[in-house]
Design a protein around this nucleic acid. Sequence first.
DNA 1: GTTACTGCAAAGGTTTTGCAAAAAG
DNA 2: CTTTTTGCAAAACCTTTGCAGTAAC
Lengths: 157, 157
Amino acid sequence: MVDDKYVKKIKQQLHAAGFKLTPQREATVVSLLANEAGHLSAEEIYLRVKQTTPDIGLATVYRTLDILSELRIVNKVSFTDGLVRYDLRREGAQQHFHHHLLCVQCGKIEEIHEDLLADVEQVVASRYHFQVTDHKLTFQGLCADCQRKNKNQMAKD
Amino acid sequence: MVDDKYVKKIKQQLHAAGFKLTPQREATVVSLLANEAGHLSAEEIYLRVKQTTPDIGLATVYRTLDILSELRIVNKVSFTDGLVRYDLRREGAQQHFHHHLLCVQCGKIEEIHEDLLADVEQVVASRYHFQVTDHKLTFQGLCADCQRKNKNQMAKD
DNA sequence: GTTACTGCAAAGGTTTTGCAAAAAG
DNA sequence: CTTTTTGCAAAACCTTTGCAGTAAC
């Protein structure tokens, strides 16, 4: 299911940073890799990991996510519901160029894996003397589904 | 100190939406207007309002911020520390075009009041059929100060 | 007068921490 | 063997809620 190469690579990164390779950490990494969609909260990740590793504790998941975050293997993202969510940084084209579309009506979060900000980062660097290492971009609005629903609703009224 | 016109306008908006104009709400609005920098957490706003209105409660500040947020007078923003912060939406050029530069070293948050995303929003609308009403853009990296500090530090080593 | 609003304290939810036991290297 | 890591429970945190009293309209 999950590409073993990624798991190995992340294990190497952990090892290189002096962390021990415990089953709990591996299970968490595997679980993150298995979840394509991303944007899971710590609790959601915990529930998933628990399916394969039932005796893991929530605190361990938090601690593992902190480590993965520190090693820049996952990104912390935060919308306005006061919950921190975690995204795996994937290889290649997707790694740095990853934006969100948050529907204000149904709450769905879509992802864009396309670099829309290359030009903008240039501007920021030169005009504001700010050395950009990463960015977070979220658009709020209406997803295609909700636009359609609203149109149908209006037709009824 | 604070431009009275803005206070009046916001009071009108509250009134129009059927809310009562209490001293606590006015004090909160005045305090938000007095703080140019923005990005304050509920607690920070509470402490500021308390200076002029000592017997206000934290819950009231939360409730007021909820109302102001609902009326789109303030924006909720959230960085990765799990705290919700509030930004006053100002008039004119600044209202929709407001991005953040977060320094990962010193934690300072700078603002850009310039629309960098007009083109990008066009792309999102047409390519992803997503109707954008708002956006949140944060760049992480090193501010000019920290870049300089790091350079000096390296010279020493 | 009615209704909405307030402060307080208690409850709710998420995240962190202390600690003794267990496991990794 | 030493050091890190774990699970649990308790604590710490931010935010919301219930309620009786108060203030706005």
